[in-house]
Amino acid sequence: MSETGSPPFRVILSATCYADAEAALHLAVLLARQVGAGLHGLLVSDEAILEAARHPHARAVSFSGQAVSQVTVETMRAAFRADARLFEKRLVQAARDAVLDTGFSAIGGRLMAVLAQITGARDIVVVGFRRALREGDALILVLGDRNPDSGQLSLALHLAAAAHKRLVVFATPRWEEEIVAAFRRGSGVRHNEYRPYLGTGNLLRELERMSPAALIIATGQDEALPVTALINAARCPVILTGPATEGK
């Protein structure tokens, strides 16, 4: 908490492993610079992972598909510690290069629970994710029925331009006109696209096929979105622009 009682404005880059964090670091730096926030790193030693490591019949596969043997709780804890060190080092370096305030913490618990616990109202959360394939060409903003003027769209447009990506916006059809008008006013990235938001189930199916570069979710809206399901569907870094709460 700051002296004035207003918590510092942060972009929190969170992950359960260094690989996921590193994959979203560039995006987090761009975002922090864009919104004028500090950059905070968070590595969560996920309890579920440690539980799985204790399990005698769990199986481990490397990111390249090779079988990994002899995974124990101790080796997993050591791997978390090593990833935390590496994550912090890389984060500090990237923040220094971008002239950003920085902080880092490594906490045990469940990822979404930890995020819900530490994020403030103005914080933006980036959940890291390392894609198996190389980075996609589009940023996806899930606006739902939210008013495009709320600032989410503007943020997404600027971020897409900075990352040289096109933007795909999922929003209810009544906002189509405003969104397309905003596309026309923007510059830099062409081929932005509006797609109708037709409910969570439809969104998950579409995300599973799209392979985006990042997903921007406006949380805290009337219909809370299932963040974990969206992450599993999109399999890319996810930006949460509201409270890190899990919807159903």
Partner: peptide, 8 residues
């Protein structure tokens, strides 16, 4: 699960 050692 996505872990520091890959997938579990």
């Amino acid at each position: 699960l996505r872990t520091p050692m890959g997938f579990t």
